[in-house]
């Protein structure tokens, strides 16, 4: 690593340190929010359990198979939400002028915004999601092969990259439409809810758009099928689960292009 990169890294680390220090001035609030987030994730998982409790199977999948899907989705989402989730406050940054303040500093805009406001209170979500994944892996009868082990590592990372891209894409929308309100959450939180259940639950054009055109089907459902060794009732081959990193890279590429265009647009229109 050359001196310049080191210096830049130090600059970004300093931003992160500032965020950590800020929290110490709200210790009680931070503790409450940390545990509320823990509760939130637990409730998400409980919701799935309650839904499965009311029936024998959902779209032909049992409770423990469903648990594997929801845990893959929730771990990927939790990582993305932790790293990038606060970008959905972009409209506040634009309205309050933080965006301008960020643009006059000698660092890239996106990492600055992320590190200045890293939602550390969401840290415990990662623990819960990880624990649920362990339970799901142990309850299912998985025949472990080297490729499945690789997939198990890749799938949550790919999910995290994918959801991060969705967060950035949804936030970029506010560059063009400042009053878009909660629209972005249709795709971020909506995407999380979509991936919490097997894709055959959905139907028609809605399934086609969310699962395949936008790629949400490859976050948890296809990798889970590949891990379980189950055939896809919708007819995709078994290696489709291994496409999840590719889908994530494509999404990240889109997000980068749109974010750059968004910054350019912001620069040509002001707030």
């Amino acid at each position: 690593m050359n001196a310049k990169t080191k210096e830049l890294l130090g600059a970004y680390l300093a931003l992160l340190r500032g965020q950590v220090h800020s929290l110490t001035s709200y210790r009680a609030s931070f503790a409450v929010e940390l545990f509320s987030n823990l509760g939130g994730t637990t409730l998400d998982v409980l919701t799935v359990l309650v839904v499965f409790r009311a029936t024998r199977s959902v779209a032909g999948f049992s409770l423990i198979e469903g648990l594997l899907m929801v845990s893959l989705s929730s771990l990927g989402f939790a990582m993305a939400d932790f790293a990038v989730g606060n970008i959905d406050r972009l409209k506040n940054y634009v309205r309050t002028g933080t965006m301008d303040a960020v643009l006059v500093r000698p660092l890239a805009a996106l990492p600055q915004l992320l590190l200045m406001d890293l939602p550390l209170r969401k840290a415990l979500r990662l623990v819960v999601s990880g624990a649920v994944l362990v339970v799901a892996l142990r309850s299912n009868d998985i025949v472990w092969t080297p490729s499945r082990v690789v997939l198990l590592v890749l799938a949550p990372v790919a999910g995290a990259v994918f959801f991060s891209s969705i967060f950035v894409l949804s936030a970029s929308l506010t560059f063009w439409w400042i009053d878009s309100g909660e629209l972005g959450s249709s795709f971020t939180y909506g995407g999380r809810d979509f991936t919490a259940y097997p894709v055959p639950v959905y139907a028609g054009w809605f399934r086609a758009v969310f699962a395949y055109a936008m790629g949400f089907g490859f976050v948890a459902y296809q990798p889970a099928l590949a891990l379980l060794g189950r055939a896809d009732p919708l007819g995709l081959p078994s290696w489709a689960g291994f496409l999840s990193p590719l889908v994530a890279v494509v999404a990240a590429f889109f997000a980068a292009v749109v974010w750059r265009a968004g910054i350019r647009h912001y620069r040509s229109t002001g707030s």
Partner: peptide
């Protein structure tokens, strides 16, 4: 719009629950 997207999501899930209840 957002309410509508979530409407689709929840509706499909609950309909799948009925279908699975046999």
């Amino acid at each position: 719009f957002t309410n509508t997207v979530f409407g689709f999501l929840r509706c499909y899930v609950l309909l799948a629950v009925v279908a699975g209840a046999g």
